[in-house]
Design a protein around this nucleic acid. Sequence first.
DNA 1: ATAAAACAGTTAAATATCAAACTAAATTTG
DNA 2: CAAATTTAGTTTGATATTTAACTGTTTTAT
Lengths: 148, 148
Amino acid sequence: MENEMHNPVKPLVDNIIALRTSLKQYYIQKIKEQHLDITYEMLQVLAALWKKERMNQQDIAVAIQKNKASVTPLLDNLCKRDLVKRVNDPNDRRNNLIELTLKGDAYRELLTPVQQDLYKAILKEITEQKVLEITEILEKLTVIIDKQ
Amino acid sequence: MENEMHNPVKPLVDNIIALRTSLKQYYIQKIKEQHLDITYEMLQVLAALWKKERMNQQDIAVAIQKNKASVTPLLDNLCKRDLVKRVNDPNDRRNNLIELTLKGDAYRELLTPVQQDLYKAILKEITEQKVLEITEILEKLTVIIDKQ
DNA sequence: ATAAAACAGTTAAATATCAAACTAAATTTG
DNA sequence: CAAATTTAGTTTGATATTTAACTGTTTTAT
């Protein structure tokens, strides 16, 4: 959002949006280089499942910060590509438990290095101390905004 | 993106995405409170035009960090709502010059306070010095990521 | 001057997003 | 225990996003 006032927060907001765009573009490019037929958003789902298998769709929605109505078509597309499968939960028939297929798990080996490369590149130029410090401030910022 | 390693960059990335989501949600809520029939993305276009009138679509795309193919339907929707109009550029017939309508300009009075309120709320809890500092680091981060 | 390249915008097709309304299942409450 | 509420997931409808191919216009280079 822009206006004519001089306010230091405006460039900050712009940079947050730009940074998120750059992150997304980074992953899109790496996915393309490996000729994988997935989107950034599908990668977000896979990454969440690499961390914790067998989540239901609601858990996935929370983990990747999306609306549960967005998760339904995302999982449809991941199933179509044989990367995950939906499994009934016998203990609570409302749940779809989401499981990685072998292919979905194999993508881990292809894509976690991509993540690690980026993290290493960042830590080569910014100290861990600084990273922790701005993480804390961004967290605080999120709280402030959510309070409004 | 997640994995099992302990890496301080992971929480930073998560916070960037969360913060962008919070920002978007903040504006969506304020738009809703005023019963305005626009999306966050349309607001981004309007805000760019409040700063600089009569941009072509390419300029708008750059200003709001979107693909030019995304800008076409965005402007279609803004025209449909009578907030902007497309004007032919006699000097370069490739260009659509985008102009605010009276209604589009009136939205400025409704929505710039929303922006200012947020900026003030942030500066009440985080010093200007800190804001400038993290802006600089985020800028640096974007450069690092784009270089990969 | 003309051919090639660059540029602005649109379109198509696939995907993603969100709110709201909905179904079905589980839980809470009186 | 039955009714009310909550929860998980889907659907719908409108919008946004991306890449790639395409049209028309302008600029560049020979």
